[in-house]
């Protein structure tokens, strides 16, 4: 007879403490309220001006446009806010002189990192989830279903975790939150712009001449680009292929099979795990050196 060990489920104490403190003040509720108010008013405004003045109907294209606008706006929020929320997570503890006490406890360094990451992103994730009702206006017109909405929100969460992990990583390595902040945004800018620029340069100067300008796949660096991944996701949802967007980037719009945004999410999850691992290692002063 196999003996069963009792597995105790324990919520991350750092996460619980931070959530308690964050939700304590009126700021959280006011922020959620204002964000959803602005989002809702914008959505209503766009719907109203797009409505046919005689039949009071809205065409599918308009609905897709509204959905795309909301998706991009929300994505902008995730992109801009995630690194800022996490870049001060560990360096802030260091600046407040609370980090040493935390590290002297029996809490695993990985748990500290994960707790701070989730706590820092919790506010932003709460904003995203709280906007679900506003997004559900789309369901009235039937253009987008629940599956597509869930895909979009999953994409937001994975992207937020990745950008948050970048912030936490620099926060662990740098003593000042300012330095961590700057470097986090530098990496984000690289992911958005740098990947495109480098890819275009390489394609134009090396790959396309070598293949006699017959290269019609997707260059690997584009898979890292979050904006391109979002476009790929939306193209898949609308089943509208964009074809060859520019040399080295091909978006099929197919709804089956592995798409660019799937690979982007997978790569992001791997990057997040690696960044969390290296952050936890950096936090551990007694870590064994790999080369010694």
């Amino acid at each position: 007879m196999l003996s069963m060990k009792k597995v105790k489920f324990r919520l991350n104490p750092v996460l619980m403490k931070e959530l308690k403190v964050k939700m304590r003040s009126w700021k959280a509720a006011i922020l959620i309220g204002i964000y959803n108010l602005v989002l809702t008013l914008l959505t209503i405004f766009i719907t109203k001006i797009s409505m046919d003045e005689y039949s009071f109907t809205v065409s599918t294209d308009v609905i897709i446009g509204i959905y795309t606008f909301m998706a991009v706006m929300q994505f902008g929020l995730v992109t801009l806010i995630s690194p800022a929320l996490t870049a001060g997570a560990i360096s802030g503890e260091r600046e407040k002189q609370t980090l040493d006490i935390l590290l002297s406890t029996t809490m695993k360094h990985r748990s500290i990192i994960v707790g701070k990451l989730l706590a820092s992103l919790s506010h932003m994730l709460l904003l995203v989830v709280s906007s679900l009702p506003t997004f559900s206006i789309i369901f009235l017109y039937g253009a987008i279903g629940v599956k597509e909405l869930l895909q979009l929100f999953l994409f937001y969460i994975v992207t937020a975790l990745t950008f948050g992990s970048i912030g936490i990583f620099f926060s662990t390595f740098f003593k000042k939150s300012t330095a961590a902040n700057v470097l986090s945004y530098a990496v984000i800018v690289f992911l958005f712009l740098g990947t495109i620029l480098i890819s275009l340069f390489y394609l134009e100067l090396v790959l396309l001449p070598r293949t006699n300008y017959s290269y019609n796949g997707t260059f690997w660096l584009f898979y890292l680009n979050p904006a391109i991944a979002l476009v790929s996701l939306l193209a898949t949802q609308f089943a509208e292929g964009l074809g060859g967007v520019f040399p080295g980037l091909f978006l099929s719009g197919k709804q089956s099979g592995i798409q660019l945004w799937h690979i982007n999410m997978l790569v992001n999850m791997i990057i997040s795990c690696l960044l969390i691992y290296f952050s936890a290692r950096k936090l551990n002063p007694a870590k064994k050196k790999w080369f010694s």
């Binding site: 403490k17 308690k20 403190v21 304590r24 003040s25 407040k96 002189q97 609370t98 040493d100 006490i101």
Partner: peptide, 8 residues
Amino acid sequence: FFGVYDDL
């Protein structure tokens, strides 16, 4: 030297 958490 140590700090404490605000709002706790």
